[in-house]
């Protein structure tokens, strides 16, 4: 188990990480999700030992490793841009970690090569031992980087934006493959991503980060269905956000009451978030939200309909079933919010 206690890091006057506490369970696949500048990569580098915190403690299985260098932590690190050694063959890249061991622990050359070949089989690159990194595609390079990291039999695998530099199709394939590989190997793994889809698809648990702090930790389903802050609901999945005022247990958008349960929400200004699919069209009823359609397009099995609501500068997005034609621009729809969440107002979101 990996524990982080009170990790803080500053770069000059910028607080990259603020008092981070986190526990990573054994064999877990954990995603650090957040926008750029949220501190997720810095956190990953601190876990690896490539960066060191200004305050706080990192421990692996109860052992304090805060001051241990990366070489002594037994971690495998996969870099966003692969960082393959361009002057070495694929086999030499994979075998590098074994070949730099002290003489007594170093396997013999044929052994290193055999191990490299096995690992390349594992990442489905058998037969490419003698190629050079420049002769491989992006997806292949990423797999070589992964094989290289696994060669040293790490107790923890860390991946920094592992699919960031790949095109969409390769990314999707590699994602599924990595998920399978993780299930097969049962190796505690942490990966950094800014892509919420990636985090939701791959991870056992997702850590959502913002502005150097953790917003929420939980399984993908919880993160999506029960976001704990307006930031999380806005960052993970598509969300519409209405500024409302709660009075007498009723949220109001510009004096128009909205039929969403506000039990337990403090009186005063708040934010009402709802997903594009959490609406119904029930005709004009009390508590509905009038929307003027501005356009519609197909997203998979739905119509994604965009529109405006008077008094709101942002566009509202809703999903409608494709069993009937999409609404025409200019058409007026009455939205009933079937599932909305109220959050205390945050100044950050307009």
């Amino acid at each position: 188990m990996i524990s982080l206690d009170g990790i803080s890091k500053r770069f000059g006057t910028f607080d990259a990480l603020r008092n981070i506490d986190l526990e990573v369970r054994d064999d877990e696949f954990l995603a650090l999700l957040g926008p750029s500048g949220s501190g997720k990569t810095t956190l990953l580098r601190i876990i690896a030992g490539l960066a060191f915190p200004d305050a706080g403690r990192v421990s692996f299985n109860g052992e304090d490793v805060t001051d241990l260098k990366v070489a002594d932590r037994k971690v495998g690190f996969v870099f966003q841009h692969y960082a393959l050694f361009r002057h070495m063959s694929v086999a030499d890249n994979v075998g590098f970690g074994l070949s730099v061991r002290p003489r007594r622990q170093r396997p013999r050359k044929p052994e290193i090569r055999a191990r490299a070949r096995d690992l390349l089989e594992l990442v489905q690159l058998g037969g490419l031992e003698d190629r050079y990194p420049a002769q491989l595609s992006g997806g292949q390079r990423q797999r070589v980087a992964l094989a290289r990291a696994l060669a040293v039999e790490p107790q923890l695998l860390l991946l920094d934006e592992p699919f960031g530099a790949l095109d969409a199709k390769v990314r999707k394939e590699l994602r599924r493959w990595l998920r399978q590989l993780h299930e097969q190997m049962k190796l505690t793994s942490i990966f950094v991503t800014h892509d919420q889809e990636e985090a939701l698809e791959l991870a056992d648990r997702v850590v959502v980060m913002n502005d150097g702090a953790i917003e929420q930790i939980g399984p993908p389903e919880d993160i999506y269905m029960a976001p704990r802050s307006s930031f999380v609901s806005g960052f993970v999945g598509d969300t519409n956000s209405l500024p409302v005022t709660v009075a007498d247990g009723v949220p109001r958008f510009h004096d128009r009451p909205i039929a969403v349960d506000a039990a337990g929400v403090a009186e005063g200004s708040a934010r009402l978030d709802f997903r594009p699919h959490d609406i119904a069209l029930d005709g004009d009823q009390a508590g509905s939200l009038p929307m003027i359609v501005t356009g519609a397009y197909r997203t998979g099995g739905n119509w994604r309909v965009e529109g405006t609501v008077s008094g709101l500068s942002r566009v509202i997005e809703i999903d409608l079933a494709t069993d009937r034609p999409p609404p025409e621009p200019g058409q007026r729809l009455a939205l009933r919010i079937t599932r909305g969440r109220l959050f205390p107002d945050e100044k950050a979101r307009p």
Partner: peptide, 10 residues
């Protein structure tokens, strides 16, 4: 590249 080498134990 240097960090990769260090992380591999070099």
């Amino acid at each position: 590249d240097e960090e990769a080498a260090l992380s591999l134990g070099a």
